[in-house]
């Protein structure tokens, strides 16, 4: 309706219509490219944040697929946001919540029920990430999300706004998360700091 109305008002409908279409196509191509770049850069950050609180990988991926689709649909608006990634996180989080609610999973498996992580030697970054993730699942989901976001470089204010929390809470949640993670790491046997050991070693031969 809107398109027809606009067209009716223009004096030379055919020419301007063609120009408008060409402009729209150019804009779309630009947005397409922009969105593809945004998705590639942001995807893993968003995924890490969401997986910090939700242990079900499939649910996270489904939510991400949907959030990015909606992101593309509304890209012309979202691209103007300070941090489009914030919008994707919010949207995907709500999708996860809906899905979990639908499945009633929350009642079936609470974090305290997950088996403790076995102590394996952490050799590379991937293993470190996986180990951290299992520990994060032992934390209240707010703590886990806040912690992961802060590690991804979001400021307290950004975290508060994206997760819908009070700003004063962020510091407490971060501290609580760090404390619990340290406990879990110690329970799993990771106690001695390598950097400290290096310092100790530099004291020279006995």
């Amino acid at each position: 309706m809107g398109v027809e109305g606009t067209a009716a008002l223009t004096p030379e409908p055919v020419d301007s219509e063609a120009a408008r279409r060409a402009e729209a196509a150019r804009l779309k191509a630009e947005h397409d490219k922009e969105f593809a770049a945004f998705a590639e850069v942001s995807y893993h950050t968003v995924e890490r944040i969401l997986r910090a609180a939700c242990w079900d990988r499939e649910v996270v991926q489904d939510a991400l697929n949907e959030a990015y689709l909606h992101g593309r649909v509304q890209w012309f608006k979202i691209r103007t946001y300070t941090e489009p990634i914030g919008w994707v996180i919010i949207t995907a989080r709500n999708k996860i919540r809906k899905e979990l609610h639908r499945r009633q999973r929350e009642a079936a498996v609470a974090p305290e029920d997950l088996p403790p992580a076995p102590h394996t030697d952490i050799a590379d970054a991937w293993e470190a990430q996986e180990t951290l993730r299992t520990w994060l699942h032992h934390l209240p989901s707010r703590h886990a999300e806040v912690f992961q976001m802060s590690r991804e470089g979001f400021s307290n204010q950004e975290i508060a706004r994206i997760l819908g929390l009070a700003e004063t809470s962020i510091r407490s949640y971060k501290l609580a998360a760090k404390k619990r993670l340290r406990e879990l790491a110690e329970e799993a046997g990771y106690t001695d700091s390598e950097s400290r050991r290096r310092q100790g070693g530099s004291r020279g031969p006995r």
């Binding site: 593809a36 998705a39 590639e40 893993h44 593309r72 970054a125 470190a128 700091s193 950097s195």
Partner: peptide
């Protein structure tokens, strides 16, 4: 300890396979 693990975890960059996954999601959308 925990700090070492955190540091190590953050050195990890998405592998080519993972990057491809991100592109796939974007393409699908």
């Amino acid at each position: 300890d925990l700090d070492d693990i955190l540091t190590l975890a953050e050195t990890g960059q998405p592998s080519p396979l993972e990057l491809a996954r991100a592109r796939r999601v974007a393409r699908a959308a």
